[in-house]
């Protein structure tokens, strides 16, 4: 087995400066250059980053968290000084020659990806359906027939919940249309489970937008100005453009 394997974080322009940042597993970060492109990599321990070791480790949440944080830390640091095409977490090559081959084989695709995100940032928008206010349209309570009143009340609640969610989904669609209009590109993801998002409300939109500087300002204005009681909007960013420049884009 080789002394070390090569862990790849991202692809950048060859001219881009490398920031001082620590990589996964406390390794140092360096560049592998070929043509106009550079891969940002670390040499890693083969006993921990071989295919088999990774398969085991990826199920270890603690390992996954520290590795993902380190991976993101490197990508975010590199993104400070220029366009960066992040590579999927735990992408490992045998040696530098293989990384150079990756750059050469996909040169035009990487160059196009870097051009697409040059001077642009990614912002994430999550929209939640705000809890529907109850009580307002509850049917009158008939004290002489509590059982009937109970059923009618439950029916009203059921209808209101269904209507509330429908309205929220429609409003979120409209918001997405407005946001996508000021963005260079947009991408939608499946709404997250409440346990993952940490919110009890139903997520009705989970999207990412690639914007230039003017677009970012417009995006902020849209989010701030949108005043809809049925929705709660959450804006995060700026992110390195994970959603628009990954290897899978090609």
């Amino acid at each position: 087995m080789a002394d070390s394997l090569v862990y790849v974080y991202a692809v950048t322009d060859a001219t881009q400066e490398l920031p001082a940042v620590t990589g996964v597993d406390d390794t140092s970060v360096r560049q592998v250059v070929s043509g106009g492109l550079a891969a940002v990599v670390s040499s890693v321990d083969p006993t921990r980053f071989s295919e088999e070791a990774l398969r085991r480790s990826l199920e270890d949440l603690q390992w996954l968290e520290s590795t993902a944080r380190a991976h993101h830390g490197v990508v975010a640091a590199v993104a400070q000084s220029g366009p960066v095409a992040p590579v999927r977490l735990a992408t490992v090559y045998l040696d530098d020659d293989n990384v150079r081959a990756l750059l050469d084989d996909n040169g035009p695709a990487f160059a196009a990806a870097l051009d697409r995100i040059r001077g642009r940032t990614e912002w994430g928008v999550k929209i939640f359906a705000a809890p529907t206010p109850g009580g307002a349209e509850s049917p009158a309570v008939d004290d002489t027939r509590p059982g009937t009143s109970y059923l009618l009340r439950r029916r009203a609640e059921r209808d209101r919940a269904a209507r509330g969610l429908q309205d929220a989904v429609a409003a979120a669609e409209a918001a997405h249309g407005d946001l996508a209009a000021v963005a260079v590109a947009s991408r939608r993801y499946a709404p997250q489970d409440p346990r993952l998002s940490g919110h009890r409300e139903e997520m009705v939109l989970n999207a990412a937008y690639l914007v230039d500087e003017a677009g970012a300002a417009a995006l902020h204005r849209l989010i701030e100005d949108r005043d809809e009681p049925t929705l709660r909007l959450e804006l995060t960013g700026p992110w390195a453009p994970y959603s628009f420049a990954t290897l899978e884009e090609q």
Partner: peptide, 27 residues
Amino acid sequence: MERQAIRRVESGDLPDETVERLGLGLM
């Protein structure tokens, strides 16, 4: 059971007494 009861109330084929009894039980 509750959803089924609400559907049957909506279809209107239950006598008032039955609706009341159902509702009370569910409550």
